[in-house]
Write a protein that binds this DNA or RNA. Structure first.
Length: 355
DNA sequence: GAAACGTGGAG
DNA sequence: TCTCCAAGTTT
């Protein structure tokens, strides 16, 4: 039996004790002290939704998805367009495409049961290193080293890691490994993430309330907020584009399904010219007679800013479909499953009214 | 390793 | 208004 203090064990125990009293109640968690094991389907679904997305944004989507598709088999059998529409507004739409592929793989290749090892989980579409570790720990009680942005921040501070992200990742991972307990790894992971989102936050961290402050090197230095050190980020380029609002006299607008692999791939959208430094020459869904909306629509994505010029045109009710797509009733435009960019365009057109 | 990939809330 | 950033994955 080792004589020296195990600093990692100390941190884990302090954190778990704090978690036992302060764990947040969330729809994908089992009640505190419950003997019930969490449902791997719900754990998986929550983890996919939570990728780069806040808890507050996820909860209503999680509730709607689980009410409508209570099991992985139900999701696997769902109509793809309905799943994509249900995801609309949550962002990072490759997640929704992979969600469907993953549900089908689990249903067809694993008889509806998720693999219970990191390695098995990691092979599923949309499941990377973080998500595999999180599911293995939370749903299957495996010891796994779960490192997300919260853990990166907490660990960077605990050990006062000076190396900037992302170069510090291997160091952070090793440190996280050192403090991850053999048992309750799932609770430990969730406790680290709760800590990172409540006390050990990016700005103005609440060190005085932190259960780990006596072990924290950054707090000892009196400069917790300076961690994690990050590489400077690049400026966002500005792109331009045209978007075409083709409206039929009987109150329908033309929408198309966007191809996979491009921005907003797989989602419903309005025809557009493509977006680049200068406006590209896309092909409008009808020739001539377009009227430009007074105000362009501005939108900011992760890696560029976009200004869309909206052009509209009215056509007779008997107008033939301009291609693959559908006429969507304006009084149900909210149900079209438009991602936020195009929902903004729709809002702008409605607001402009007749001119 | 770097770039692509959404959105909304907080300060 | 503006900047930061969130339970990352894929190519």
């Amino acid at each position: 039996m080792p004589v020296e203090h195990n600093i990692g064990e100390e941190v884990a125990q302090a954190l778990l004790a704090h978690y036992d009293r302060h764990a947040r109640s969330l729809p994908w968690r089992t009640p505190p002290g419950s003997r019930n094991l969490p449902d791997p389907y719900r754990v998986w679904l929550s983890e996919i939704m939570l990728q780069q997305t806040t808890v507050a944004a996820v909860i209503p989507y999680f509730d709607r998805f689980t009410a409508r598709w209570p099991t992985v088999q139900a999701l696997a059998a769902a109509d793809e367009a309905e799943v994509m529409a249900a995801w609309a507004g949550l962002g990072y739409y490759a997640r929704a495409r992979n969600l469907i592929a993953c549900a089908r793989a689990v249903t067809e290749q694993y008889g509806g049961r998720f693999p219970d090892t990191e390695e098995g989980l990691r092979a599923l579409p949309g499941v990377g290193a973080y998500t595999a570790a999180a599911i293995a720990a939370i749903a299957f009680q495996r010891r796994a080293v779960v490192v997300d942005a919260n853990v990166e921040r907490v660990v960077s501070r605990l050990f006062a890691i000076e190396t900037p992200l992302p170069a510090s990742r291997p160091l952070i991972r090793a440190a996280a490994d050192a403090i991850t307990p053999e048992t309750r790894a799932g609770d430990f992971a969730q406790a680290m993430m709760d800590l990172g989102s409540s006390l050990c936050v990016p700005r103005n961290p609440q060190c005085l309330l932190c259960p780990l402050r006596s072990s924290c090197a950054a707090h000892r230095e009196g400069r917790a907020e300076t961690y994690p050190v990050k590489a400077p980020k690049k400026e966002k380029p500005h792109r331009l584009g045209l978007v075409w609002w083709l409206e039929r006299a009987d109150g329908h607008v033309w929408i198309e399904r966007r191809e996979d692999k491009r921005m907003l791939g797989g989602m419903a959208g309005l025809p557009d010219s493509g977006w680049d430094k200068a406006i590209e020459r896309g092909v409008p869904p009808a020739a001539g007679g377009w009227i430009t909306l007074n105000r362009p629509v501005e939108h900011v994505f992760t890696h560029f800013r976009l200004t869309l010029t909206v052009q509209r045109k009215r056509v007779p009710t008997d107008t033939a479909p301009p291609g693959p797509g559908q006429w969507w009733p304006l009084d149900r435009i909210g149900e079209a499953g438009l991602p936020t960019l195009f929902a903004k365009v729709a809002r702008a057109v409605m607001k402009a009214g007749n001119d």
